[in-house]
Amino acid sequence: SISSRVKSKRIQLGLNQAELAQKVGTTQQSIEQLENGKTKRPRFLPELASALGVSVDWLLN
């Protein structure tokens, strides 16, 4: 799922939720909701993929 991929990649990069949120241009709460499965397809998906160094396709599939 996107939530597990985001969380595992974030941890692999040594980032906390607030640091990832800053790179993406969103809030820590938005990252938390995404990782908890409350958000399925965030509006900041391209920025998120870029910050994590992955493709949008990788996040979604």
Results as ranks from 00 to 15, higher is better:
residue 40 K to R: 12
residue 40 K to C: 13
residue 14 G to Q: 07
residue 36 N to V: 10
residue 12 Q to M: 11
residue 16 N to C: 07
residue 41 R to Q: 11
residue 41 R to G: 08
residue 59 L to R: 00
residue 29 Q to Y: 15
residue 7 K to F: 06
residue 23 K to S: 08
residue 26 T to P: 01
residue 5 R to Q: 05
residue 57 D to V: 09
residue 2 I to V: 10
residue 40 K to Y: 15
residue 61 N to P: 08
residue 50 S to P: 03
residue 19 E to S: 07
residue 55 S to Q: 07
residue 55 S to C: 06
residue 2 I to D: 02
residue 42 P to I: 15
residue 7 K to P: 02
residue 22 Q to P: 01
residue 44 F to Y: 13
residue 21 A to E: 01
residue 60 L to F: 08
residue 19 E to H: 05
residue 1 S to Q: 10
residue 4 S to T: 12
residue 7 K to T: 09
residue 58 W to D: 04
residue 10 R to M: 04
residue 27 T to G: 05
residue 4 S to V: 12
residue 17 Q to L: 11
residue 24 V to F: 03
residue 51 A to C: 06
residue 23 K to R: 14
residue 29 Q to W: 15
residue 58 W to R: 02
residue 36 N to A: 14
residue 48 L to M: 05
residue 24 V to G: 02
residue 38 K to I: 15
residue 56 V to F: 08
residue 55 S to M: 06
residue 28 Q to K: 13
residue 22 Q to D: 11
residue 41 R to M: 14
residue 1 S to E: 10
residue 4 S to N: 11
residue 61 N to K: 09
residue 42 P to W: 15
residue 39 T to I: 15
residue 34 L to Y: 04
residue 34 L to N: 02
residue 45 L to P: 01
residue 50 S to M: 14
residue 20 L to E: 02
residue 10 R to Y: 01
residue 34 L to F: 07
residue 17 Q to I: 11
residue 33 Q to W: 14
residue 34 L to S: 02
residue 27 T to S: 12
residue 5 R to I: 07
residue 46 P to K: 15
residue 18 A to M: 11
residue 30 S to T: 10
residue 61 N to Q: 12
residue 37 G to L: 04
residue 21 A to M: 02
residue 7 K to H: 07
residue 35 E to C: 03
residue 53 G to H: 08
residue 49 A to W: 01
residue 30 S to D: 14
residue 16 N to I: 05
residue 10 R to P: 01
residue 4 S to Q: 14
residue 45 L to K: 00
residue 11 I to H: 09
residue 43 R to L: 14
residue 18 A to V: 09
residue 14 G to F: 04
residue 53 G to T: 04
residue 6 V to Q: 00
residue 31 I to R: 01
residue 58 W to E: 05
residue 23 K to E: 07
residue 32 E to W: 12
residue 47 E to S: 10
residue 2 I to F: 13
residue 49 A to H: 00
residue 31 I to W: 01
residue 41 R to F: 15
residue 35 E to R: 01
residue 57 D to K: 10
residue 53 G to E: 08
residue 46 P to R: 15
residue 27 T to Y: 04
residue 56 V to A: 08
residue 52 L to Y: 00
residue 29 Q to H: 13
residue 45 L to Q: 01
residue 58 W to P: 00
residue 49 A to R: 00
residue 30 S to Q: 15
residue 1 S to G: 11
residue 59 L to V: 04
residue 3 S to K: 06
residue 26 T to Q: 09
residue 61 N to G: 15
residue 17 Q to F: 07
residue 34 L to E: 01
residue 53 G to K: 07
residue 51 A to G: 03
residue 35 E to A: 02
residue 33 Q to D: 15
residue 37 G to W: 04
residue 57 D to Q: 12
residue 2 I to T: 06
residue 23 K to D: 03
residue 29 Q to R: 14
residue 49 A to D: 00
residue 16 N to M: 07
residue 23 K to Y: 08
residue 49 A to S: 06
residue 7 K to A: 10
residue 7 K to Q: 09
residue 21 A to V: 01
residue 7 K to C: 09
residue 38 K to F: 15
residue 13 L to W: 05
residue 19 E to N: 06
residue 44 F to M: 07
residue 40 K to P: 13
residue 52 L to W: 00
residue 40 K to V: 13
residue 31 I to G: 00
residue 36 N to S: 14
residue 55 S to Y: 04
residue 42 P to G: 05
residue 16 N to K: 09
residue 54 V to I: 06
residue 11 I to K: 10
residue 37 G to T: 04
residue 1 S to D: 13
residue 4 S to I: 12
residue 17 Q to C: 10
residue 50 S to G: 10
residue 20 L to P: 01
residue 36 N to D: 11
residue 48 L to S: 00
residue 24 V to E: 01
residue 60 L to P: 00
residue 38 K to H: 14
residue 33 Q to I: 08
residue 39 T to W: 11
residue 34 L to I: 12
residue 9 K to M: 15
residue 8 S to T: 11
residue 5 R to V: 06
residue 25 G to L: 04
residue 45 L to Y: 05
residue 8 S to E: 12
residue 42 P to Y: 13
residue 10 R to H: 00
residue 20 L to Y: 01
residue 8 S to Y: 15
residue 1 S to T: 14
residue 42 P to R: 05
residue 15 L to R: 03
residue 34 L to G: 01
residue 15 L to I: 10
residue 37 G to D: 07
residue 13 L to Q: 07
residue 48 L to Y: 02
residue 23 K to Q: 10
residue 47 E to Q: 14
residue 56 V to K: 06
residue 1 S to C: 12
residue 31 I to N: 00
residue 56 V to S: 06
residue 45 L to I: 10
residue 28 Q to D: 06
residue 20 L to R: 01
residue 60 L to G: 05
residue 34 L to K: 02
residue 14 G to L: 05
residue 36 N to L: 12
residue 20 L to S: 00
residue 13 L to N: 05
residue 54 V to M: 06
residue 44 F to R: 06
residue 13 L to K: 06
residue 51 A to T: 07
residue 11 I to Q: 10
residue 34 L to R: 05
residue 15 L to T: 02
residue 10 R to E: 00
residue 6 V to C: 11
residue 37 G to V: 03
residue 12 Q to P: 01
residue 57 D to E: 14
residue 19 E to V: 06
residue 28 Q to P: 12
residue 40 K to N: 12
residue 3 S to V: 05
residue 3 S to I: 05
residue 26 T to S: 07
residue 15 L to Q: 03
residue 2 I to S: 03
residue 22 Q to E: 12
residue 15 L to W: 14
residue 7 K to M: 08
residue 9 K to E: 03
residue 61 N to A: 12
residue 23 K to M: 15
residue 27 T to D: 11
residue 18 A to I: 10
residue 16 N to P: 05
residue 25 G to T: 03
residue 60 L to A: 08
residue 40 K to M: 14
residue 41 R to K: 11
residue 37 G to M: 06
residue 61 N to R: 10
residue 56 V to E: 10
residue 8 S to V: 09
residue 19 E to W: 04
residue 42 P to N: 06
residue 17 Q to P: 09
residue 25 G to H: 07
residue 8 S to R: 10
residue 17 Q to A: 10
residue 5 R to M: 06
residue 60 L to D: 06
residue 61 N to E: 10
residue 1 S to A: 10
residue 54 V to E: 05
residue 43 R to S: 14
residue 39 T to G: 10
residue 18 A to N: 10
residue 44 F to C: 07
residue 47 E to F: 07
residue 33 Q to N: 15
residue 17 Q to W: 12
residue 15 L to F: 10
residue 51 A to E: 05
residue 26 T to R: 06
residue 54 V to C: 06
residue 43 R to W: 15
residue 61 N to H: 13
residue 48 L to P: 00
residue 12 Q to G: 08
residue 35 E to M: 03
residue 9 K to P: 01
residue 33 Q to T: 08
residue 11 I to L: 14
residue 51 A to R: 03
residue 16 N to Q: 09
residue 39 T to E: 11
residue 26 T to C: 14
residue 32 E to H: 10
residue 25 G to D: 04
residue 39 T to M: 15
residue 28 Q to T: 14
residue 53 G to Y: 05
residue 50 S to H: 12
residue 13 L to V: 05
residue 48 L to H: 00
residue 35 E to G: 02
residue 20 L to A: 01
residue 41 R to D: 10
residue 32 E to M: 12
residue 2 I to P: 04
residue 43 R to K: 14
residue 17 Q to E: 09
residue 41 R to V: 14
residue 48 L to Q: 00
residue 33 Q to G: 08
residue 37 G to I: 03
residue 34 L to H: 01
residue 25 G to W: 03
residue 23 K to P: 03
residue 20 L to W: 01
